[in-house]
Amino acid sequence: MNTNVVICGIGGQGNILASGLMGSALVEKGYKVSVGETYGASQRGGSVMSHLRVSDERERGVLIPHGQADIVVAFEPVEALRILRVYGNPDTKVIYDTRPAYPLGVLIGEDEYPALEDIAAEIDANCSESYALPATEMAVEAGNAKVANIIMMGALAAMDEMPIEPEEFFMALAQNFKGKVLEMNKEVFMTGYNAIKEGRGK
């Protein structure tokens, strides 16, 4: 078994924490896991991605080869497209947050941000299954925009390719959070998990 997941977004969205939690939960379960993080000097505002590679054979290199992502988890729609073009293949599945984050060039008026329906159309045409999930909105409803990353991890855990149960992810959460924060993270994780299981945004 080998599963390659690219988790991508913008600096500050909690991408690296999310991939670390998922990776730790999988190691605890006995899988061979490697995670590669690409952020460089772009902690603030730049594109960030983590490569999560899960195997029951051996620990692989930290970078997923182009065209070999089984799942793309994107915290932002344009980032979903950017990553799918390089790492996707016709069998790739995509989960993406529908809330755009505009780059500086767009704010200044030099670049244009594509229409969301055009982004959705291109994603759908280039993958086997896609889920447009309003994770940030769901997080705001739950009381904290910052937990969108955990909602997305819930969504990822619900995919058939991921050998992980919610309870197993909760153990990794418990290593990092306590009390009310832990409970909230568990709750929002389940909203993401259930959304995918119910086929929301598909």
């Binding site: 182009h66 497209l81 790492y87 505009y102 280039n126």
Partner: peptide
């Protein structure tokens, strides 16, 4: 040609997508 990514990839000819340039916070 590679299945995806790089030159010759069908998906690479889609929408123009903006870069994320570095700036001060």
């Amino acid at each position: 040609a590679p299945a995806c990514g790089g030159e010759g990839c069908p998906a690479a000819e889609g929408l123009a997508i903006p870069e994320r340039e570095l700036t001060f916070c």
